[in-house]
């Protein structure tokens, strides 16, 4: 099977939320001699890009499809990376968590999966995370980006979410070194809300988060 056919088959399986078929496509590709670099760079990443484009164009993809695509693709990339001929170059380092008072983790998990599939180093701080912990962990891990997820308006706009993180970054003179991205339902309903809370960017979904985080990392001063 040609690599384009493998990519097509993998994308179809993700679109159909058929986990078994998606994994079979990858297994068969590996068995047929497709190298780990090609699996990542010519199958997984273009498929995720394609899903993002379909989502942006006509909103034809659902949360469930994003969820499954992120989980499967991050698993595949994690399996392939140790098999690379040369050590891979990380796309960047991100710490992510749900804001204080927010106990919803599905959206965050999708973003974590998408970022890992995009070869970012991601540390998931979990649910109910304080602004101090976001910043302390970002500094400790050398992260360029802090990701803050909120399902509810008050956890998005609260003093312990992006506003609090922004204040701490300012206070510690870290704004040039660490960028802030937010996501979750409130930001979908008001696309200016990320500015109100002091974030540098927001993403509508996990797939979009990959490009947004990559863009923020370019702005980071070494």
């Amino acid at each position: 099977m040609r690599i384009e056919q493998i990519t097509q088959a993998y994308g179809d399986a993700l679109f159909d939320t058929d986990r078994g078929q998606a994994l079979r496509v990858i297994e068969e590709a590996v068995h047929a001699g497709v190298g780990p670099e090609d699996v990542v760079f010519r199958v997984v990443l273009p498929t995720m890009e394609n899903l993002m484009n379909r989502s942006a164009e006509d909103g034809a993809t659902s949360l469930a499809q994003h969820f499954l695509a992120s989980q499967i693709s991050s698993d595949v990339v994690e399996r392939m990376l140790p098999l690379f001929q040369k050590a891979h170059v990380s796309s960047g380092t991100v710490v992510i968590g749900s804001a204080l008072g927010d106990f919803h983790g599905l959206g965050k998990r999708i973003v974590v999966g998408c970022l890992k599939a995009g070869m970012f180093e991601v540390t998931d701080l979990g649910l109910n995370v304080t602004a101090h912990r976001f910043v302390d962990e970002a500094v400790r891990l050398g992260a360029q980006v802090i990701g803050i997820s909120s399902l509810m308006v008050h956890t998005a706009t609260g003093a312990q979410a992006a506003k609090g993180v922004r204040a701490l970054l300012k206070e510690r003179n870290l704004e040039g070194r660490i960028k802030v991205i937010v996501g979750g339902a409130p930001y979908l309903f008001d696309e200016n809300l990320f500015r109100t809370v002091g974030a540098d960017a927001f993403a509508r979904n996990g797939l979009e988060a990959v490009n947004a985080v990559a863009g923020l990392i370019k702005e980071v001063k070494p």
Binding site: R19, A64, L106, R109
Partner: peptide
């Protein structure tokens, strides 16, 4: 069960 756990069950 939590959305994170229920969604994969439904998709499986």
């Amino acid at each position: 069960l939590g959305m994170e756990k229920w969604m994969p069950v439904l998709l499986g």
